[in-house]
Each structure stands twice: as C-alpha cells, then as structure tokens.
C-alpha cells in the first residue's frame, strides 16, 4: 500500500514536472533563459559572437552589449517575407562602427533541422548566424511563441542578459526597428 502511494505521488510530481515546461514568452526586465546553442564550425561566426567552437555554447557566452534573437522557421510565410528586412537590419548594424561590436544578431529555427536552416539561409542569403532547434528545445524555453518573434536583451553589470524587447511579428522596417532597439537599450 505504501509502495502504491509512493508510486502515485511520484507519478503525480513527475507529470507535474513534465507539463511544467510550459513557460511564458520572455518579458521585459526578466533574464534571458539559459539557451544552449549548437557548436559553431565557421571561424567567422565564432569571431562574430565571440565564442569558441569547442562545443555547444550558452547564449551567456556571446560577447556584446545587446543581443537580438529572431525565432523563425523556414516553413513560416511571414518569416520568409520578413527575411530581407532582417538582412537589412544586420547590414545596418555591421555598417555602423558605433554599434557593430555592441549589437549581435542571431536566428533560431524553431523545429528546423540543420538542412532546413541551411535552406532558409541560402534562399534568403542570410549572413548572420542561424541555429537549428530541431527538437523545439529553445522554442519551449521562450514560451512556444509563434513565428517570427524577436527578443532583444542587454547585458547588465553582472554579465546577465536582461530582456528589453520581446514581440511577435516581423521587423518590417529595418530603420525603425534599429531605432527602437537603440532607444530601448540606450546604445
């Protein structure tokens, strides 16, 4: 009887734990979830994000003052339509000596395999880093948001990323999006 009770209690807590993975999207003022990104082989991308290619890395390892994370999918028509604007945003950041080293941009393909991310990268000639999230691990960490979704965070004095922008929808206009990011982050 005791064993049965213990089993039921254990099952209850296990299932509670299993469904407790449902989380809300990151809110402004909160810390960015501890996302683990796949290892990078490309030396240029390693240099851009300031990480070594020795294995998977945490988003906390990224060097910079602001990080912009695009949650996308190659299967998402709005992400496809928004791709040129996100490319333009990256170009604008890279063309500005003031912010080039400070703002880092990356994309996470929700439910997309390496091949699927590569298809998106090649189709839209994306030159900023895109990562696979085939098992929806990061997608779950950010509250299973619809795509496209943008999260921007700023590093505080203790080195933690604090979210200051978290919104559903494409950026649509690179200039106004960058202006918003610079205003909100104070860069």
């Amino acid at each position: 009887m005791l064993k049965l009770m213990s089993t039921l209690i254990l099952l209850f807590f296990s299932c509670t734990f299993a469904f407790a993975v449902d989380v809300a999207p990151p809110k402004e003022g909160e810390s960015l979830p501890e996302m683990l990104l796949p290892a990078i082989e490309d030396a240029g991308v390693q240099k851009y994000l300031g990480v070594s290619g020795s294995g998977p890395f945490s988003v906390n390892d990224i060097q910079g003052e602001v990080v912009i994370i695009q949650i996308f999918s190659m299967y998402c028509p709005h992400c496809q339509a928004d791709a040129p604007f996100v490319n333009e945003l990256y170009k604008k950041i890279q063309n500005s000596s003031q912010i080039r080293e400070k703002i880092k941009l990356l994309g996470v393909g929700a439910g997309n395999s390496n091949l699927e991310v590569d298809i998106f990268r090649q189709k839209y000639k994306v030159s900023f880093p895109l990562f696979e999230d085939e098992r929806f691990v990061i997608h779950k960490q950010v509250g299973e948001v619809r795509t496209p979704y943008f999260i921007a965070a700023k590093k505080n004095s203790e080195g933690a990323w604090i979210v200051f922008y978290s919104k559903l929808g494409g950026i649509k206009n690179a200039d106004s999006f960058l202006k918003t990011i610079r205003q909100l982050s104070g860069l």
Binding site: K3, S6, T7, L10, L11, S14, C15, F17, A18, F19, V21, I71, S73, Y75, C76, P77, H78, C79, A110, G111, N112, R135, F136, H139, K140, E144, R146, T147, P148, Y149, L168, G169, G170
Partner: peptide, 29 residues
C-alpha cells in the same frame, strides 16, 4: 522494487518531456 518503480516512473516523465507536443506555427495564420 522501489528503485525499479522510480526508474519506470521517471522514464515515463522524461518521455513526456522529450515528446514534441509543439509546432512552430507561423503568425501568418
């Protein structure tokens, strides 16, 4: 026995966590 039950229950729980119950639905819809 208890150890076996624990392993079995945790296996079920981990399976539930690992099973993809999600999809990356586009904002288009």
């Amino acid at each position: 026995m208890m150890k076996k039950t624990f392993v079995a229950v945790m296996t079920v729980a981990l399976f539930l966590i690992a099973t993809p119950l999600t999809y990356g639905l586009s904002e288009a819809f």
